[in-house]
Design a binder for these strands. Structure first.
Lengths: 123, 123
DNA sequence: GCAATAGGGGATAAATTTATCCCTATGTGA
DNA sequence: TCACATAGGGATAAATTTATCCCCTATTGC
């Protein structure tokens, strides 16, 4: 496992929430788990741009940060279910606010994001 | 300047907001600019863990994404002021929600973040 | 002339995060 | 016997982000 070489910033609330939510797929993992998509294979289907590996890694971090719990059923083929902890559930309204802002401004956002991407690509 | 090799995900609102807010200091930059700390040197003082260079880079991205505007006064020594655009201002309540959650849970967050950091450091 | 001020940015290195590849396990059904 | 489903994870590579270093501008005040 990768071993961090610099220490995290833990000064203010924004630092702290950043530490647990920073990760390409974490927010969406929390969101989809809350929506009832609990099994790894389901989550992978909901987030097809991610690989199985990264999702596992990020789910493990969410678990270490006590935002989700993992339940392994001793059956074959294996069955695993993730759920939000009570702590994790308190994040859902915040994530909802993020998603709403993104949805409400999607046209403009696509526009400015692509504009920047294109102009940097053309040397 | 670094040139992206993979294309951004622009599927849902969460992807979109991620594209513009993802960056170690961006959220705090927006927050402090909104609080009236507009000059680069002030922002650097408010965020002492960042270097001048990164703040410039991330401010440029925020500008390209139309969340802030930059005003350069033609004086010597140079004076520069950043302000939120109307679009950028609409993000403030969302950022406020993030910060509030982080503040409200700061003890627990410090705890779980450090727990993970320490256990991974010890092999 | 030299330092200080306030802000910029290129080049490169280091850190961090994601992606790829590949191998493991165990019943079930063809 | 072989493929399939379902989940896990090590090793390594590639992509991306941050950090370091160093140099530049122009004026004011010693």
């Amino acid at each position: 496992m990768y071993e961090r070489k610099t220490s995290p910033n833990l000064n203010c609330g924004l630092d702290l929430i950043g530490e647990v939510l920073y990760g390409k797929w974490k927010i969406r993992l929390l969101w989809f788990i809350d929506q009832g998509h609990k099994r790894p294979s389901e989550l992978l289907r909901k987030i097809p741009d991610a690989t199985r590996r990264v999702l596992n890694v990020q789910l493990k971090e969410l678990e270490d940060h006590e935002l989700v719990t993992k339940k392994i059923y001793p059956v074959v083929p294996p069955k695993v279910e993730y759920s939000l902890t009570e702590f994790g559930k308190t994040l859902i309204p915040v994530i909802g606010a993020l998603g709403q802002w993104g949805d409400a401004n999607q046209d403009r956002l696509r526009d400015v994001i692509l504009k920047r991407a294109v102009s940097s690509a053309s040397h």
